[in-house]
Write a protein that binds this DNA or RNA. Structure first.
Lengths: 343, 343
DNA sequence: TTTAGCACTCTCAGGTCGAGAGTGCTAAAT
DNA sequence: ATTTAGCACTCTCGACCTGAGAGTGCTAAA
């Protein structure tokens, strides 16, 4: 599909205008508003062509034109000029990160909050997660009776805590001893590697080893880390969701962890760190997202820890700005992660 | 305000019917539907009285009656018969808890999910939190360079992790030594107690001690632990929120952590473990919740760890069932917490 | 005290109507 | 070969009207 420059201009203007007003745009309005040196009739003809190409659509005969999903896709793919985020915005964001508590959880929450505010849409951020779980450190803390708190630290900084119940009460000194043994023998090993160390431990140690293995397998199997959401109410205030329950459906995806993981997994599979994915109107696969667009980026260290960050908003979304924002936040997170967490 | 039995019956029936239909209820409908041995005229007279008492309201002259907030309050305060939750439901819930992973975080998520499903409303659950932070265990794990991962365990099982930056790189053995020193000297002490141990530590130890103190103070100052939410989309599907943005406002409270903490703090202040608070229509204080009711209970061990659990739904809510559910989930959590976490 | 009867009120769904915005087509102008 | 003016046509949207239906309050009788 080859468009003339004028057609591209008109498509761009219509999208631009529609994003602001949420209304169908007519030929006359367009000419007036942008002082085009064209008559409305000419614009009408071009619009007609764009409609044939399925880039524009009329809600009904004799209303203005509205971009189709394909229109948006063409726009995002070919016409968008990747504007860098204004320096002031970038400074504001960076500032917030560097003055927050030095804590991964805080950073992720902050990233979600910043994205939600900047884009006025719902944001989602997943914790950095390694494909392979590599052991770093184990801690066992007696609580009472046979209950023991197990804290497992992986290379890269992922931490999991869990209460386990031992066959019989064990003194704290004994637990610390075993934990130290693990931390010495198993550091930098994966689940298989740890399994092979089995004979170095006594009965109690072996019990704990089994639990540890189960836990590490569990971590590896989960496709993504913890998921942080923010700004869901932003989406609700968009006019296109005023009275249908389309918004409810879209937000439902965010709430249902398993759906969300699917979405992330299938979208991120081809995306490298630094890359960005734009999913417009569900792309035929996600029925519930027919009215929504999702912009996702990957952050972290490609070889070890990666996570996703993105926003979900109405199709009618300021793509250039939002894409820049998502990308910028992903970069900031990448920096923070590689500074503090890298293996 | 003294009501006759018949007035109480009529009020109860109207509330009951309105909760199901979300419509104003007329005298004739009421008589038919519930086979009352009364004429509609009599019911009309009684309705008129209840309207004078400000327990009922007419959306407009010559529509049926709708309960007022006060009506709901009277109902919840005086007329409700606390029905125990059906045994099967209780078993289902208990079952889910006892077959989940033994992990506080899992339990809280599960509690939120169960409540949201059972009540078809939004649910909120806060992590158990002690008024006084009492030290139990410290762990220091070298990551790289001067970055150290600090894991702090409090009596009661609250865990906080944080990256700290030391003035210079320190070997893991040295860190473990210091951590062990803390765990020995400071166990069962509060922030003040730890501060008094300052002279027992060397320079590095004192640096860490300061960070530790700051962290403990921070924990104490935060009124509640982590907050888990679920089922926000349930609220959106209620007919009264179909086309206004009242729902958005209400859900906004759930998203804005600080607002939510206020709500919890001011509501829970008079509530003991085992007790329950019902906040109907914002009670004049919470403008955004004018259309909503919040039901909250406290769980945990009154002397050490407590948290809140509750739901937020439309005013038009099946109070008896929802209250039972919230109370039941609170009890289950109390049991779990006192079994595994108690000091 | 309760109830039958009745006049009255108000909403809601449906229908009609004109204004306004926008289109596509045609024929003239560039 | 494009571009543009002109015009007939289409469709929505809000305003307005209308009648059916539901519900009320009051009065007088049971």
């Amino acid at each position: 599909m080859r468009l003339t420059d004028r057609q591209k201009l008109i498509l761009t203007l219509i999208i631009h205008e529609h994003i602001q007003t949420a209304q169908p745009i007519g030929s006359k309005t367009l000419v007036q508003k942008y002082n085009l040196t064209l008559s409305s009739a000419t614009v009408r003809n071009e619009m007609s062509v764009l409609t044939d190409y399925n880039l524009l659509r009329q809600p009904h005969t004799s209303a203005g034109r509205v971009p189709t999903e394909e229109g948006y896709r063409f726009f995002v793919g070919n016409l968008i000029h990747k504007s860098a985020l204004p320096t002031t915005t970038r400074r504001t964001i960076t500032h917030q990160f560097y003055q927050s508590r030095q804590d991964v959880e805080q950073w992720l929450k902050l990233a979600a909050s910043v994205l939600a505010n900047q884009s006025q849409a719902a944001s989602l951020v997943t914790a950095p997660h390694a494909e392979k779980a590599i052991f770093k450190h184990l801690e066992l803390i007696a609580t009472r009776g046979r209950q023991v708190l197990m804290v497992l630290v992986l290379m890269g900084g992922e931490i999991r805590q869990q209460f386990i119940t031992l066959p019989e009460p064990v003194a704290q000194e004994r637990l610390s001893e075993i934990a130290a043994q693990f931390s010495n023998l198993c550091v930098r090993r994966d689940a298989d590697g740890i399994a092979r160390m089995r004979q170095h431990f006594d009965a109690l140690g072996q019990d704990i080893l089994e639990i540890l293995l189960a836990e590490m397998t569990l971590i590896e199997e989960s496709a993504t880390g913890e998921i942080y959401l923010d700004g869901m109410t932003n989406v609700l205030s968009e006019p296109e969701f005023a009275e249908s329950d389309e918004a409810r459906q879209a937000l439902h995806i965010l709430e249902e962890r398993s759906l969300l993981e699917n979405l992330l997994a299938s979208t991120m599979v081809n995306t490298d760190v630094g890359g960005i994915q734009v999913l417009i109107g569900g792309e035929g696969t996600w029925e519930e997202l027919r009215q929504c667009s999702v912009i996702l980026a990957r952050y972290g260290d490609p070889k070890s820890l990666t996570g996703s960050v993105g926003v979900l908003g109405p199709i009618r979304m300021p793509y250039d700005r939002t894409i820049s924002t998502v990308q910028f936040v992903a970069n900031v997170l990448s920096d923070l992660v590689s500074e503090t967490l890298a293996v």
